[in-house]
Design a protein around this nucleic acid. Structure first.
Lengths: 194, 194, 194, 194
DNA sequence: AATGAATGAGGGTTCATTCAT
DNA sequence: AATGAATGAACCCTCATTCAT
């Protein structure tokens, strides 16, 4: 794919991500995606096999991006607590922009008719992403900062998922947690109390 | 068959809840709901105005049931900690059976075209349900058992939502938390440490 | 059919005629007919084989009634012109009440799946009704009052149909013809001018 | 197939007009229209919003065509009587081809759920068409050829509607009026007798 | 005889996908 | 490569009809 195509594909990606974030898969129409991307309906099909494929590729596109950036955040020479704070900042922001999309897609995954290789790729991607996180928390455990009431992978999952609380807070009209509140919640639960 | 049958409606409810739990709204076909309920396709429409209405009524049906039973669990003479344990037992079980359904429906709610009165009713139901929970946690705060790093309503939301972690644990192949694990997680975070 | 049944059947007839007059066949629902007749939906089917049968019987019911009453009007000892005036009065009134129904039904007749005997009966009914009228106009021709630019049967048809003009006048917002206007129109066209 | 094809739309128009002429609105199936037009069922919906919209557009399509051609017939330098004869020739032919369609549609109009603008457009179209006719008959009145027992608009309506008689004649098995018969009928009624 | 709950065939409409240009 | 007109499978919903009571 040449330069020009890359741009077209990215416009499609942006449009699709935007719409899939806001609406249910079946509420999003290919025509709408095409229009918002300023391309013809048929053009999408030169880049993606089907609507499901587009959804899947959107997810992977985001996961890869997230993986890359998150790796950069946690693979650093700073001390654990400082890095954790950076990680919270990063995730807090990422969550705000992408959680709706990812939540939605993951809820749909079981119904997607994916090829064997796609499933394999997705599984690897998910685990690779979790591994980065879990390795980081393992470091916290090894340094004696985090208590091991959970496995490092479980902690990584809680870390990913805890920002969901804010969605519910918003739903019920409660004040949302700031990134500092989130950090405090996390340390209260997982840090060894002095 | 003369009187509109409570049983028929319950069969439809059961079938719909079951399918809506397993699949996306648009993947569930009315014909499938009818078949699994052992009724004709048209019969559903004598009880529910539309597929969306059926989904909505399913949610309300469950919320009402949940509200009633949960109220019984927490409105008791037992001491706070014992009652909290009962509440965890109850929620853990409820979550296993119903969370998929409720999660899915709540994700769809914004797209549902509900009547004013339906919206009002849903809002009331959600808040009524949360109130029972939040009153209970307020008692914990008042008794000095729970620290007030969050409002009682926020705690109630966390309490509802924390079982979600298990869904993710399952997704990533991590061991799920037992009800005791959940209770320990909660007390670690919200109980005053002696 | 006993007394009681006759009443029920007439309530169904009235309800059906009323609705078929106002709406298209397919817009009229059996439930609506039943409700307006204060009977159960199933009851209609104890009197009529189907919705089409009900429509057909409605038409016949009206034609018979019309035939009977119109016969009484024209079979009289009064002179031709006086009788014609009476006929206009009668038809003008009949038209106002029933033309919508009859027009509608006749437009539907070709699509109705009628039994051989029903078709035969309808044909006889239509012709019998026309015959009364045409015999009367033949008398006018024989008496030298009406000129024979048309057959008596054609005149009878024009006589039946001319009130239609008022429907169109109303549609276009023009003043409608009074019964006297109609009579004048008719005589201008068919009476020998002195 | 790049440009939305005028031919495709005309094929749909022809097919729809043909079927709506022969059958009741609800007896005509979209599938049938599509098949007779040699297009896919969905294609119709790229040209028309709904079945009702198609019916409405069919009517307007015909009225516009009729208006244009009829205007050409009556807006001429020939003398009144000659022009009237031409008008009869034209209407007689038009009626044979289109009256069934227009009659049927007009009977349905009250039940159609039309937009404000559609209603306005239809109203204008109807009146514009009638105006051409009524202006012409006004000329006849002004020239002293036609007596003014009716307004020119009423005469125009009678002129439009009188061909209906032939439909009834056919129904009852009477000989139909030729265009000359119709002309004679009209002049007998509306022309000043010398 | 009367009822109305239950039925399911049938049809209007949507929309992902194709393919000629 | 890009397009969008055309397609038809699929699905929600309606409503005439049936039948157990």
């Amino acid at each position: 794919m040449q330069k020009k195509n890359e741009q077209t594909m990215n416009r499609i990606f942006d449009s699709a991500e935007n719409l899939f974030s806001k609406k249910d898969f079946h509420e999003v129409k290919m025509e709408e995606i095409a229009k918002n991307a300023n391309v013809g309906k048929g053009t999408i099909y030169t880049y993606f096999k089907s609507k499901e494929d587009l959804l899947f590729k959107c997810l992977m596109h985001n996961l890869e991006d997230h993986h890359k950036k998150f790796s950069e955040v946690v693979n650093t020479d700073k001390d654990f607590k400082t890095t954790l704070k950076d990680a919270f900042d990063f995730m807090f922001d990422f969550f705000k922009r992408k959680s709706a999309l990812i939540q939605r897609i993951m809820g749909l995954m079981p119904q997607l008719k994916l090829s064997e290789s796609d499933i394999k790729y997705a599984r690897e991607m998910f685990h690779k992403t979790l591994d980065v996180s879990s390795d980081f928390f393992q470091r916290g455990i090894d340094e004696g900062i985090i208590i091991n009431i959970m496995t490092s992978r479980q902690i990584a999952i809680v870390f990913q998922k805890m920002f969901d609380f804010n969605v519910m807070f918003a739903f019920y009209g409660e004040p949302e947690m700031s990134v500092e509140d989130c950090y405090r919640f996390f340390t209260k639960t997982f840090f060894r109390q002095e």
